[in-house]
Amino acid sequence: MTVIQQLNSPFMYMLCGAIVFIVALICVLFLVRAWKEGLALGIEKEKMRRVVVSSAAFTVLPSIGILLGVIALSGSLGVPWPWLRLSVIGALHYETQVAQAAAEAAGLSGLSASEMTLGAFSTICLLMSMCIMWSLILSAVFGKAYSKRLMKGRSAADAEKGSSGGGFGDLAMTAMFVGLISAYIGSYVGGLISGNGRFSFSGNWMPLAVAAAGALAMAVFVWLSEKKKYSWAESFSVAGSMLIAMIAAVALDLIF
């Protein structure tokens, strides 16, 4: 049996599948509790149903992207471990980078099925788990205290302005998100202008073009939702815009 066959063995599927199953149970538990609490607090069932539909629609495309990450890693690490890593804590941009560094430290020239040994594999698995563990540990240790502190800050601010929520907290979160988007869009602009040498204007233009296509598609969805009053347009605006932008990426690649 080759190393890659062992990495795809029933033992690996059972081990990884069992952990993924436990994660799914945890999510179901959170979902059921939140749904019941929402009803008890008087949140309309229809509202929560819209959130379920919108979140599911929103998730489909990025999940296919994540599945591609599993496929990309499956060539060197087998299918079960990348499946586990991208279902639990993992992130597309993280896994390959850490796996590559671990493979090099384990004495391989890189992530390669032909060079992979079982010892190198268990080393890679341990490093992949260790590096991304910290947000999980921090939330377990400090999550409750941090949350209380945040709520306390909000209560004081709300009492001051006599409201039951919103206020600066709401604007701050929108601002944080605006900052996040700005960092990424800025990186696409920088990549185009200086990606292949400062001010060479010969870098990768595709991310910026795809982002522009996504923004344009979103503008159409917003117009349909706000001007034409199509309520479905709002629920599918993000997923729909992403799909259109991704199709644009394929078209642009074929044309240029």
Partner: peptide, 26 residues
């Protein structure tokens, strides 16, 4: 609105559904 009970509930439902859809698709 951020900081409200409704936000906590909606956020939890949204992330739970998203995580489950990803798990199922994977």
């Amino acid at each position: 609105k951020a900081g409200t009970a409704e936000n906590e509930i909606i956020s939890t439902i949204s992330i739970a559904v998203s995580a489950l859809v990803t798990i199922v698709i994977l």
